[in-house]
Design a protein around this nucleic acid. Structure first.
Lengths: 404, 404
DNA sequence: GCAGTTTGTTTACTTGCGGCACAAAGTGAG
DNA sequence: CTCACTTTGTGCCGCAAGTAAACAAACTGC
């Protein structure tokens, strides 16, 4: 925090100071017109106009002076602002238990191109990341678009500041693998421009949902989600990801939600991780679990198509109760103003929203905090979009410096 | 968050923009000299000089051009910066189970004057707050100092944005009492200048420790403390208090730390509140608890003077283990980079620091996050100083506007 | 006493941005 | 269709925060 910042910012390095906030407003869809931009920034129309023109000159946004379908209100119609379709993109990559995926993501969380996931040998991080980066490089070559940076989402806690994967249990990587370093090296080796970032997938999903999905406008957003195995959590505070002092915050998989529950590899019993993930659901519903990489789909389909089956319903209610207990514990500590659920938890919410909300409210200490809205994630590929957010962040912070 | 801020900041309202950050640096002791101020602000020497001169002209700080005891390094000695002894003060008030206390607190957390706590009839918030505000008004009259605002610390969760006390269990106030409203009314009625603020005492203690005590420099500071009864928690993130979306975050008293433990009024069993507070300690140590308003002192004295006694030692170790379990749970969710303990928890830490640290490390999921430093609170009257911080905040944010 | 180092001060100069006046582009009433 | 009205965009002026650069001041060590 301290330590004599020796970097005296010179005037030349700084851009127009309102440039970053303005771009963020357009990026998150909170500034559909120049008039709104003016009021959101709290500056004069003259300044907002100059800022918008500069962002347009940078090739980031588009200013439509011919509105066409006007809003219908009185007065002169405002120029519409939108992200530029042919603007720069970020390279987003994701690794999960059923393969990997690469995509190009423009401003506004718009997925421009995507390379479908391929199941591959998972043992060696360098090999897997080399492949996914190569797939991304191919997309970049095909599109001919400028790249502002790269982001990678991994299904593991990522320790800060080193960027090592602490528990990539569900992909066959070694614990402590230096994923950030490896990913950066792959990106550099492929000749891809811009910085490279790596973070946990649920954290990135939460970030993406906060900016473009179900979390928009929340000040204290809690996100809990499953993959095929295990449970992850994330917290977005005032628009910034809160990942703790060493990246390990909100690793909620080992909250105890059933003191007499099944043992967990962490040494405890009845952890959220083993009580509310897809495998737990299938076992509780007395179904035969399929291959690991389709557990999420299998359990989700089961919930949606056979909810009438007593076994399925009983299993769902059991998991909802356990999940609710875990969420209530988090609510008591974090007091979020919105909760969003992904993976199987989303399916559980949609199967019986009232039951989940009732459990959370009942187990919360304060009525107020327990009545927090609980919503489903709404973005496709939210981890991927979140990975792109990381790469976009320098541009959002200071467009001039980042694109120089 | 959104909603067209119609308040277009005019140029006249804004002061020198670096004024607030500069005052905060002096306030928290991070800018002992003008040269350090220059580098911390990241501005030129000319700007830092102008800012320091302006703060001096406002009567907030003192610039000692004759250093006397120089640092001994090379070059021209820098002017020393310090808060002005005769500068304005904030009125701080605290209510707890053994009475109340009023104080005047200057910049830098310096307690200028204090009115000793008086045990009084506690039933009526308006009466109690009227008395404490009157005591503060008396201090202000005696000192003749200017008052920038008032702050009140209460031993209860304070719901936002209304400012009602949700669980003032250990003082005989009704749940939901509108303490902020009542306190503001008392302050206005007494003719005391400036805005009035109200918040939870442990939150304020954490804020004070972060700025002036054991929490200085921490980015993610977790504070846990007892009063005479019950346990409170607080989190300071990047220098700002995190109290959740409705003020109810970090109400950690009802974390389960002993599934077979004694019943708690919240309906659960073995809550931190009833397992690690002074009363629990005295019972575990087989001592006769004295009057409620001296439980903290009684248990602290016992720990310090009779730690050789097997009963005392066994009780301490039991409480340390339970506290460690609770802290580990918080560490797994919040991943703080420092923990500070107050009240009996501080005494427990000092009785056997190694044991507590070992328990926390053992029950943390990640070795990294479990090795977080655990320290004692160091400030006297930290809740009182924290209450003053609330009142000082507008001045720190914009000195010109706040003192206009 | 003199070179070297670090800090404070003075004097332009740059520049982001507010304020203002005016032009532009729509709506609705008659 | 015209005119009043509302809201938005643009050009111009000026302020003031803060940089940059040159100079002065104060202390150390040889």
């Amino acid at each position: 925090m301290n330590g004599k910042s020796t970097t005296t910012r010179t005037k030349l390095e700084r851009g127009r100071s309102a440039l970053g906030p303005a771009l963020e407003l357009v990026h998150t869809g909170r500034a559909p017109t120049r008039a709104v931009l003016t009021s959101e920034l709290g500056v004069t129309r003259a300044t907002a106009g100059a800022v918008a023109a500069e962002l347009e000159a940078l090739g980031l946004i588009k200013v439509d002076s011919s509105p066409g379908s006007a809003a219908g209100s009185q007065g002169r119609p405002s120029h519409r602002l939108s992200v530029l379709d042919s603007g720069p993109v970020a390279l987003a990559a994701q690794v999960h238990s059923d393969g990997f995926r690469a995509a190009l993501v423009g401003l506004g969380g718009r997925i421009v191109a995507t390379a479908p996931g391929c199941v591959a040998v998972m043992a060696d991080p360098a090999q897997v990341l080399g492949e996914v980066v190569e797939a991304g490089a191919q997309l970049l070559r095909e599109s001919g678009l400028r790249c502002v940076g790269s982001g990678l989402a991994v299904p593991s806690a990522v320790a800060e500041p080193e960027g090592t994967a602490l528990n990539p249990l569900h992909i066959a990587w070694p614990a402590g693998a230096p994923v950030r370093e490896v990913f950066s090296a792959c990106v550099r080796a492929a000749g891809i421009a811009g910085p490279a970032f790596t973070a946990n997938d649920v954290n990135l999903a939460a970030l993406a949902e906060h900016r473009h999905g179900a979390g928009r406008g929340a000040q204290h957003l809690l996100c809990v989600a499953t993959g095929h195995r295990g449970v992850g959590g994330a917290l977005v505070l005032d628009g910034r990801l809160h990942s703790g002092s060493s990246g390990l915050a909100l690793e909620v998989g080992h909250l105890t939600v059933n003191p007499e529950g099944r043992p967990c590899h962490c040494g405890g019993r009845g952890c959220l991780d083993v009580e509310t993930d897809p495998l737990a659901f299938l076992v509780a519903a007395r179904r035969e679990p399929g291959p690991e990489e389709s557990l999420l789909k299998q359990s989700g389909d089961l919930l949606r198509t056979e909810y009438g089956d007593p076994d399925v319903r009983a299993a769902a209610e059991e998991l909802i109760d356990r999940l609710g207990l875990g969420l209530a514990g988090l609510v008591n500590i974090l007091n979020p103003d919105r909760i969003i659920l992904g993976g199987l938890h989303r399916d559980l919410l949609e199967a019986d929203p009232e039951r989940l909300r009732a459990v959370v409210a009942d187990r919360s200490l304060w009525g107020r905090s327990g009545s927090v809205p609980i919503l489903s994630c709404t973005l496709d590929h939210n981890s991927l979009v979140g990975a792109a957010e990381l790469a976009w962040q320098p541009v959002l912070d200071d467009p001039l410096a980042a694109l120089a």
